[in-house]
Amino acid sequence: MSRKYNVAIVGATGAVGTQMLECLEEREFPVGNIKLLASGRSAGQTLEFKGHAVLVEELKHDSFEGVDIALFSAGGARSEEFCPSAAKAGAVCIDNSSAWRMNPDVPLVVPEVNPEAISGYTKKGIIANPNCSTIQMLVALKPLHDFAGIKRIVVSTYQAVSGTGNKAVEELRVQTGELLNGRPANNEVYPHRIAFNCLPQIDAFLENGYTKEEMKMVDETRKIMGDAIRTSATCVRVPVFFGHSESINIETEKKLTVEKARELLEDAPGVELVDDPAEHEYPMAMDAAGADAVLVGRLREDLSLENGLNLWVVADNVRKGAATNAVQIAELLIEKYLK
């Protein structure tokens, strides 16, 4: 009988936590015992896993006895506090927050891009999940980089409200209904109304004029793909429930034609090429929602640059941008390291 692994989900009642639970079941991950952990406010709820109701327990430092893999999606502060406790108890932590991403002793992993980095988990017992926008961008760019060598990336993101969590999803829903019925819409989650609007701010602004979200894409790309790639990002919140979209421009070391890029992307792991403009076929958030593939299209050469290419990339930010990526890391972990 193949080995089964005891898994804990920290932040189990949140948008990403519930998706992690669903992904474990969908992908038939060999779960022995499942432990669902959350704050005291959520403890006592039940969630379903493989047809059985599982009680949500309060997250404590002694919650990880007997746990092999701990999937964290409870925010940076809780990850900083509880990941060391989980690792000390013998669990390998796969953390979805930004708390450990830039720690030099913690691997930052996108399975389709740098699976070999997982081996570094032994230093702290922690593997970091990149930012959702970084994940989908690098899944799309990896095959192009391997062929042509990317020198520079300019990316503008159009990010769904689910990236902020369930409260933001509800705020967009309520605001939309209020406005369509001629009533004023209140905003609590974001500094401005999100319904029928776009907000060119995700996370706090830094002294350099960029937001934390934008600098995550810059710094994480460098850590995952190498210091030679320069990245500039503009991140925008849009009134979409699920699915981040990105307009990406790359400059490459050698010429990369549209035809060659299509050929590379057609065979790339985790990528679905959707690129037939004549038939109005291109990646859209509504098609990515609920799926794990990174959709790529609108390929065209940059008319202002000798070795430039433009592309449009869309993915479900809660699935591939968070939960699915974490479960894929866990799959590689048990395949190659936790035998």
Rank of each mutant, 00 (worst) to 15 (best):
T211V: 07
F196P: 08
Q175Y: 13
D203A: 06
P200Q: 07
L179H: 12
L199H: 09
A195M: 02
R193Y: 02
T176H: 15
Q201W: 00
L180Q: 15
D203H: 12
G182T: 11
I194E: 10
N197W: 04
P200M: 01
E213H: 09
R193V: 12
N186C: 06
I202G: 01
K167I: 01
N181W: 05
Q175M: 08
C198P: 00
E171S: 04
E171T: 07
Q175D: 11
D203Q: 06
G182F: 09
I202H: 06
T211K: 02
R183V: 00
L172T: 11
A204F: 08
A168S: 15
A204P: 03
C198I: 10
G182Q: 09
D203W: 04
R193Q: 12
P191T: 07
R183W: 00
A168K: 09
L206K: 03
L172R: 05
E213T: 12
G177F: 07
F196C: 04
Q175K: 07
P200T: 03
K212P: 00
A195N: 06
N187T: 15
N208D: 15
F196W: 11
P184W: 10
R183L: 03
I194A: 09
H192N: 11
E170F: 13
A195H: 08
K167M: 03
Q175C: 05
I202K: 02
Y190I: 04
E213L: 00
E213Q: 08
Y210F: 14
Q201V: 11
E178I: 00
F196V: 09
P184T: 09
R193M: 04
A195L: 02
G209E: 01
Y190W: 15
N187F: 15
E171W: 12
V189W: 02
K167H: 07
T176F: 04
I202P: 00
T211G: 02
E188P: 00
E171I: 01
A168C: 11
P200H: 05
G182E: 10
Y190N: 12
E171P: 01
M215G: 03
G182H: 12
I194D: 11
A185R: 07
L180A: 11
V189H: 08
P191S: 03
A185M: 03
T176P: 02
E170S: 14
A168G: 14
E213W: 04
E188D: 01
R193H: 06
Q175S: 12
